[in-house]
Simulated scan of single mutants.
Amino acid sequence: MDQIVEFVTNHYILSGLFAALLVALIYTTVASLFSPLKELNTHEATLLINREDAYILDIRPSAEFKKGHILGSKQIKPELVTKGDFSTLEKFKDKPIIVVCAMGMTSKRTASQMLKAGFTHAATLKGGINAWQGASLPITK
């Protein structure tokens, strides 16, 4: 214990950074556990697609969408996503929706906006289309 106290007093900047990173890690872990937003892995997403006929919403730019996308997915215009305008998806409000982007980061914000707009079953694909392709799941062009 004395060595830890000595290390902290001699290296207070390093110790402070470690403490800050530890707090940030704990915060993000706890926040994700209590978040209403679900992150689905590829297996969970395929089960949701096959069993509950989930709607797959691809929010990537058109050029990337045309290079390859999940079979049956639909694209939404990027300007509608930035405005938070999901009026074209009103008929899918009570249906499971999986939001897909390139790596799974942008889709979190969009799915959160959808939950605030009243969509009850919005989720994201963890890792995005890259995880889907990494799992050797089918894509179409």
Rank of each mutant, 00 (worst) to 15 (best):
L14Q: 10
P138H: 10
F92D: 04
L33R: 10
I13T: 14
N50G: 04
V100C: 02
S62A: 14
T9I: 14
T82A: 12
G68K: 06
I26F: 13
K116G: 00
S87M: 00
V8F: 11
N50W: 00
V5G: 10
K83I: 00
G84P: 03
N10F: 10
D94A: 11
N10S: 15
T120I: 11
T46K: 12
N50K: 07
L80Q: 07
D58N: 08
V23W: 04
E39S: 12
T110D: 01
K141I: 07
S32T: 13
I76L: 14
K77Y: 00
K77I: 02
S107F: 03
A135R: 02
L47T: 13
L33N: 11
F7D: 13
K95S: 04
F18E: 06
G68S: 05
Q3S: 11
A31Q: 13
I129H: 08
V5D: 14
L48K: 05
S87P: 00
L21V: 13
R60D: 00
S15P: 03
T88N: 15
Q133S: 15
T110Q: 02
L137E: 10
F65V: 01
G84T: 07
F86E: 03
V30C: 10
S35W: 10
G84Y: 12
K126I: 02
Y55L: 14
V81E: 10
K108C: 10
I13Q: 15
N130Q: 11
K66Y: 00
T9W: 11
T140P: 02
I4R: 09
G127R: 02
K83H: 08
G134L: 12
K93L: 06
L14R: 06
A45T: 09
L22V: 14
E64C: 01
T120N: 13
A20R: 04
M105F: 10
A135L: 01
K67Q: 06
L21N: 14
P78T: 05
V100Q: 01
V23D: 00
S35F: 10
